[in-house]
Amino acid sequence: MTDHSTLLLKKQLKELTKRPVEGFSAGLVDDNNIFEWEIMIMGPHDTLYEGGFFRAIMTFPTEYPLMPPKMRFTTDIYHPNVYPNGEVCISILHPPGEDKYGYEQASERWSPVHTVETILISVISMLSSPNDESPANIEAAKEWRENYPSYKKKVQRIARRSAEEM
């Protein structure tokens, strides 16, 4: 199993290095550990996060692709679907079978067909359109809903800071 996941991840890494997808760049934290990826998400255009550089670590379980990876932002980020500790909460990263949130359909959860690319595309689209049904950062969700101008300002400040820290 481990061989399979290693192969799969190596293949994806190679593909992404040669032909990266717009909006993010992916590499390994440590070249000897294929299960831990370093991701750099470039704030998508026309969103509040534009101009920001968000670093994240993606950790794959050895059961990959049967189980989803975890993704955690290491750059400060303020978003309704990202826990204050940086962990990303999107339905496709939730393990299949176990419906601990009670409302997600199986089709919305992890499936082995997802690749690093599809996950990151979901994350990027999450950045521009938060899902406030299952907020991970309640404060951010509340502000997003009730005081958008202030949310906007905060996010833009964070995006700016993330660019300066590079």
């Binding site: 992916a26 590499g27 370093e38 991701i39 750099m40 550089f53 670093r55 590079m166």
Partner: peptide, 9 residues
């Protein structure tokens, strides 16, 4: 210019 490769700037 910022160059990003392999998840790094």
């Amino acid at each position: 210019i910022r160059l990003v490769y392999s998840g790094r700037v």
